[in-house]
């Protein structure tokens, strides 16, 4: 639900254009890097000729190792995400406590307590 404040925020953050010629500068950079004409996608051809059994086996082992590592990485990323979430929830509750205590302290000051 948007209120007037949020509408003003939207208006203040409306997108703006970069300086004129931006797209030309980007494409000039691309052309400079390539050093040739319009078609500048490098072609890459993969050639599989003959795979010895030993190579296939080491690839399989590599895949298993990679999968284990990838699993561990996924676990680690998930653990990190959960930790950040846990700390966020903790801070949210402590933040509420701090604010309430602060407001109480201010109102006590006002009433001469």
């Amino acid at each position: 639900m948007n209120d007037e404040f949020e509408n003003e925020l939207k208006r203040a953050l409306r997108p703006v254009e970069p300086d004129a010629g931006f797209a030309d500068r980007v494409t000039a950079h691309i052309r400079d890097s390539a050093g040739r004409g319009d078609r500048i996608r490098p072609t890459v051809r993969l050639r599989f000729r003959w795979l010895p059994v030993a190579l296939a086996a080491s690839m399989a082992l590599g895949i298993v190792t990679y999968e284990w590592h990838a699993h561990r990485v996924r676990e680690g990323i998930e653990a990190r995400r959960q930790l950040i979430e846990a700390l966020r929830v903790t801070q949210e509750k402590l933040d509420f406590v701090y604010q309430t205590v602060k407001q109480e302290a201010h109102s006590n000051d006002d009433s001469g307590v």
Partner: peptide
């Protein structure tokens, strides 16, 4: 995707 830089420039704009 095919390598057409002017098409890419349209995307940028």
């Amino acid at each position: 995707r095919d390598g057409d830089v002017s098409a890419f420039a349209e995307i940028v704009r």
